[in-house]
């Protein structure tokens, strides 16, 4: 996993609530057996005017110029501001894969769907929860000022505006530790191998049917 420590970048405002994973990456692209190649299809139904299909050359497709990601002023954005319940719907990890490959490193919203939040952190995409009124203020600031950037500091758990306003955010210590150090958590869990085996010994006594062979 890629580390996340500190990131400063251009902000794009996606001022919508309940953005679901079917919008983030539509199902036809989930047929891939790889982890890469999803960036060009991020928000495919909203970004392009035609219907996309896997393996297509997207450079010649007609863009929906009214969709915020296509505004020239937001080209190269690496931080996204959005509204509550971002990432609701399916458990597809292709959603954070697509967002990261597009170039976004951090998504800020008043709330995230649980599975999406978890999937993001596992891939080095930082989901930041800020209060509704702060998100509304930052969206308004982004829209008002071309080139608006934010500075995200994970270690200090701060979002810093160009004017120096600071907004702190919560993140649980284990996830923060993994992100800051880019750790593979399978390795971390395997350090508990003895505990897992010990647990299995007790479990097989109490609930042996759990360990019946499937055939």
């Amino acid at each position: 996993m890629e580390k996340f420590t500190q990131h400063k970048g251009l902000v794009v405002p996606l001022n919508r609530a309940n953005v679901d994973t079917d919008q983030i990456i539509p199902k036809q692209f989930l047929k891939s057996i790889k982890r890469t190649g999803f960036g060009q299809n991020l928000f495919d139904d909203w970004r392009y005017l035609d219907e996309g299909y896997p393996g297509q050359d997207c450079s010649t497709r007609p863009l929906d110029e009214k969709f915020v990601l296509n505004f020239p002023r937001y080209r190269g954005a690496s931080i996204m501001l959005t509204q509550q319940n971002f990432g609701c719907g399916s458990s597809r990890e292709h959603a954070p894969w697509a967002i990261l490959e597009y170039g976004i490193r951090c998504v800020i919203a008043p709330s995230f769907a649980d599975i999406f939040y978890n999937n993001s952190i596992k891939n080095g995409l930082l989901p930041v929860v800020l209060e509704q009124k702060t998100v509304d203020f930052l969206i308004a600031s982004t829209e008002a000022e071309e080139g608006f950037e934010l500075d995200i500091n994970l270690d200090r758990q701060l979002v810093i505006t160009p004017n120096g306003e600071r907004y702190s955010f919560e993140i649980d210590p284990y996830r923060k530790h993994c992100l800051l150090n880019g750790l593979d958590d399978i390795d971390l869990t395997l350090e508990f191998s003895d505990d897992i085996r010990e647990y299995e010994k007790l479990r097989v006594q109490r609930a042996p049917w759990i360990f019946n062979k499937l055939h």
Binding site: S90, R92, E93, I115, N119, T189, F192, S193, I196
Partner: peptide, 29 residues
């Protein structure tokens, strides 16, 4: 995500992402 279905049996059931699929395969946790 619709793994929540299995909770109907008095089970703790929920959806996971692909990283967690790998994690469960490798560690059973």
């Amino acid at each position: 995500s619709h793994t929540s279905t299995h909770g109907a049996f008095g089970a703790l059931a929920h959806g996971i992402g692909t990283s967690e699929v790998e994690h469960v395969l490798a560690t059973q946790c």
